[in-house]
Amino acid sequence: MPYYIAVYDANVRRVAKVLKLFRRYLTWVQRSVFEGELTEAQFHRLRYEVQKLINPDEDVVIFYELRDARYSQRVVLGTEQGHLNRLL
C-alpha cells in the first residue's frame, strides 16, 4: 500500500478545516505535516475533498507518494510535535 507524506499551507480562514480533514485520513506528524498509508481510493477521496476545501490562489497542498513505508527512513532532529503509532 502506498505511503504518503502530505504538507499544506492554508489561509488562516481554512487551516482548521484542512487540519480536521487530514486527521481523518493520515497521522499528524508536525504542524501542517501528515503521513501514513492510504489505499488508492482513500487517496483519491482525500484529494477530492482537499480540492473542494482549499483556494488554489491562496493555499497549497503537496503529497509525496512512497511506494511502500518499508523503503523509507525517518530521521527526526529536535522535539516531535505529533505522535506516530508505528516506527518506520
Rank of each mutant, 00 (worst) to 15 (best):
L26T: 02
Q73N: 09
L21F: 09
Q30T: 02
L88M: 10
E40H: 08
N85P: 00
A41F: 08
L46W: 00
E40S: 14
G36F: 07
V33E: 15
E80S: 05
N11Q: 12
N55F: 10
R67F: 03
N55L: 09
L46R: 00
V33T: 15
T27S: 13
S32Q: 03
Y8E: 03
E65H: 11
V15G: 01
T27D: 15
A10D: 06
P56E: 10
L66C: 08
H44K: 14
R13M: 10
Y4L: 12
V15M: 07
E37L: 01
F43V: 02
E37H: 12
Y3E: 01
Q73R: 14
V76S: 11
E80I: 04
L66I: 01
A6S: 11
L21N: 05
Y48M: 05
A10H: 05
V75G: 03
Q51T: 11
N55V: 09
Y64A: 00
Q30Y: 07
Y64F: 13
S72I: 08
R45P: 00
V29H: 02
A6G: 06
F43K: 02
A69D: 00
L46V: 09
E37I: 03
T27Y: 13
R14V: 04
R24W: 05
I5Y: 14
E40C: 07
F22C: 15
E35H: 04
A6F: 07
A41E: 15
L77H: 00
L46F: 01
R23T: 08
E49D: 07
